[in-house]
């Protein structure tokens, strides 16, 4: 037995050493592949960034110019042509408004559905999930007539209300899955200690799902900020957000790609930065919100 191990050990070490170098080689290949993929992948994003800093004379040069002197001309022009602050204000109000409303409605609902004993609870949760997959046009038409009848057409409220349906459904489902994976013991213990029902929800369960709430909020803001179809039909020239202005500017003759690129900065950079800084929550939302 002992002789066998001594003879067998040497080749085994050699083999494992070979395996380690093979692994290192493999990792190096994988990483090179990833870097190359990302480099190609980022071309459209880099184009968007570059265009905004391109001087107008290089904008329509044919063949396209790769080298140019960066300028802030396009950003100055954006502020001349558009009321950027008002557009930003609309975008912020619409996305934050919908996010707050969705969280207020969705977080308690998610908790209730996860804790309820009723066998209908899971079906209600599925219903919320299904609402998210409905094409917006199906609800937008009747909603448009509804808003016309109650006089909210053209206001931020109309956009906030309809965005909140999809966002609230998303938040409820997401928080449902967070609360469901949370053991009940802590709440039970708090309740036997004399904590109120609301206290068990608000002070015991809620603090443990803060990551879920951050992820939900991020997605609500992203959804409303990026939407233009709903806002295009429900807002007017005073209440329109950035996305609608961007679409309207698109195709107008006197607005160059550079100006458009600069305006697009305002509508993409905030969300991009949020997703990068809150990457952990962003990834959680993308994976957990779907299960």
């Amino acid at each position: 037995m002992s002789t066998m191990t001594t003879t067998a050990t040497l080749p085994r070490i050699a083999a494992s050493a070979r395996r380690v170098t093979a692994l290192q080689k493999r990792i190096r290949i994988e990483r090179t592949a990833l870097v190359l993929i990302i480099a190609v992948y980022m071309i459209p994003v880099l184009w968007l960034v570059a265009t905004a800093y391109k001087p107008p004379k290089d904008m329509f040069s044919s063949p396209p110019s790769f080298l140019f002197e960066p300028t802030l001309h396009n950003f100055r022009r954006v502020f001349e042509v558009f009321d950027v602050w008002s557009l930003l204000q609309s975008s912020i109000i619409i996305s934050l408004g919908s996010a707050v409303l969705s969280l207020l409605l969705g977080v308690p609902a998610g908790y209730a559905l996860a804790r309820a004993r009723s066998r209908y609870a899971i079906w209600v949760a599925y219903l919320f999930l299904a609402i998210r997959t409905v094409p917006i046009i199906a609800t937008l038409l009747p909603f448009y007539l509804m808003m016309r009848d109650i006089g909210l057409l053209g206001t931020w409220w109309a956009v906030i209300l309809i965005n909140t349906t999809l966002n609230c459904a998303f938040v409820t489902w997401m928080m449902f899955s967070y609360f469901r994976s949370l053991p009940r013991d802590m709440e039970e213990a708090a309740l036997t200690d004399g904590c109120t029902l609301f206290g068990a929800f608000y002070r015991v369960a809620l603090p443990t799902v803060v990551p879920g709430i951050i992820a939900s909020a991020l997605f609500c803001v992203m959804f409303s900020w990026n939407d233009f179809l709903v806002a295009m039909f429900l807002t007017n020239s005073d209440s329109k957000p950035l996305s609608v202005a961007l679409l309207a500017a698109f195709g107008t003759k006197d607005i160059t790609w550079g100006t458009l690129g600069a305006l697009a900065h305002f509508s993409t950079v905030p969300i991009m930065l949020m997703a990068l800084f809150l990457n952990r929550y962003f990834v959680q939302g993308l994976t957990k919100g779907v299960h």
């Binding site: 993929i37 990302i38 992948y41 980022m42 459209p44 994003v45 968007l48 992203m222 900020w225 990026n226 233009f228 996305s243 961007l246 679409l247 697009a264 509508s267 993409t268 969300i271 991009m272 949020m274 997703a275 990068l276 990457n279 962003f282 990834v283 993308l286």
Partner: peptide, 12 residues
């Protein structure tokens, strides 16, 4: 980095 496109408005 790869998730950046997911965050960009489909409009843009």
């Amino acid at each position: 980095f790869l998730l950046i496109p997911v965050t960009i408005t489909p409009l843009v």
